[in-house]
């Protein structure tokens, strides 16, 4: 399908038509708080242009609280229920492209290997992804530094570029084409193509840092003094992980009440002291230093070794929000760019 334009005034009608066939998941504004991906209903006005601060879409695919098993013994007999999400066609709209790429990373963890996570899989199957490049890039983005962003387009079914009063829509798959079938769209002109290309180039070059490609995962050293420096400052909250579009770690807990048991999954993070605390009291990561190191090495080295993807998409949430301004970009400049320079000198 050729690229098309859709006027912003037509988005409402388009959404309405879409909602008759799909469950539409899009960022809903919540006052000053970041918008959250929710299944939208009639009358909702989601943020589709990527202009607002938002929670990562993983909040929808990997909910903060998800019941895996329910055991009910109240009626005398034991009933076991595994409440899988409903099987229905869904579409995620309005995710920033780096966040959509984050879903690719989640897929590697939950779908690629020997075990397929049924809960994640259920939400992910039949899911179409429509990403957006906003008119204005966020100051904290550094997507072009972590990966070849051109390859990211293959992971989304359609990509919308915000061109002011209209979106330029690039369709990348049959799923995307089906999604847009019958939408009130018009043909693109050369001017539109040029405007879209300009926006893409801007996205590619936003926050470009002096490292790329292999340097990112090859130069990260286990014994780099930078880990100690981060650990000194780090107050050990889990904000960077919980807001990260690619952090996948979770905990499973059982809760009882009277005659029932609920086994649920919730978020967990390598930044917490009890993450690696063993039942007998030993903690292999007993100080903040190995915890700080773990998060970055996992993202940039271990995940690359394991799955061939970099576990960071440059969305900049941790850059913007870290309470003590531990800036992942600075850390990478130290760990990746400096060794590169040294290698060039020799």
């Amino acid at each position: 399908m050729a690229d098309k334009l859709i006027g912003k005034d037509k988005i409402g009608d388009f959404l309405k038509a879409l909602m008759s066939k799909y469950t539409v998941v899009a960022p809903i504004e919540r006052g000053d708080a970041p918008a959250e991906f929710q299944e939208i209903a009639d009358g909702d006005t989601p943020v589709l242009d990527g202009s607002k601060n938002m929670m990562p879409p993983k909040d929808y695919l990997l909910p903060r609280h998800e019941v895996l098993v329910k055991i009910d013994m109240s009626g005398g007999e034991t009933k076991v229920e595994t409440p899988l999400p409903e099987d229905k066609p869904r579409v995620i709209m309005g995710a920033w492209l780096p966040d959509a790429q984050g879903i690719q990373v989640l897929d590697r963890v939950f779908l690629d290997r020997k075990f397929i996570d049924p809960y994640y899989a259920r939400r992910r199957e039949n899911l179409a992804l429509v990403a957006v490049i906003p008119a204005e890039m966020r100051w904290s983005w550094f997507c072009g530094s972590v990966d070849d962003v051109d390859t990211w387009k293959a992971g989304v079914d359609a990509l919308m570029y915000d061109l002011g009063d209209k979106f330029y829509v690039e369709v990348n798959s049959d799923k995307g084409a089906a999604l847009l079938e019958g939408a009130p769209m018009s043909v693109v002109s050369d001017v539109d193509v040029a405007a879209k290309d300009k926006l893409w180039t801007e996205f590619k070059n936003t926050g470009l840092l002096p490292f790329a490609g292999k340097a990112l995962y090859e130069n990260l050293a286990w014994d780099d003094p930078v880990w100690g420096e981060i650990a000194d400052k780090c107050i050990a909250c889990g904000m960077c992980s919980y807001m990260c579009p690619t952090c996948t770690c979770f905990d499973i807990q059982d809760e009882t009440c009277g005659n029932c048991v609920e086994r649920y999954r919730c978020r967990d993070t390598c930044q917490f002291e009890d993450f690696t605390l063993m039942g007998h009291g030993h903690n292999p990561r007993s100080t903040q230093l190995p915890r700080s190191r773990q998060r970055l090495l996992h993202k940039f080295r271990y995940q690359h070794e394991q799955f061939g993807v970099v576990g960071c998409t440059g969305c900049g949430r941790c850059v913007e929000l870290c309470p003590v301004n531990v800036d992942i970009r600075e850390v990478l400049c130290r760990t990746c760019a400096e060794p590169m320079e040294q290698a060039a000198e020799n």
Partner: peptide, 24 residues
């Protein structure tokens, strides 16, 4: 309802000095 339980509020707080927080 928005709380993601990241504990940034607790960790950044000088008055939250407990070695082990009640919620851990």
């Amino acid at each position: 309802s928005r709380c993601i339980r990241c504990y940034a509020c607790r960790q950044v707080c000088p008055a939250c000095y407990c070695e082990t927080c009640f919620c851990d």
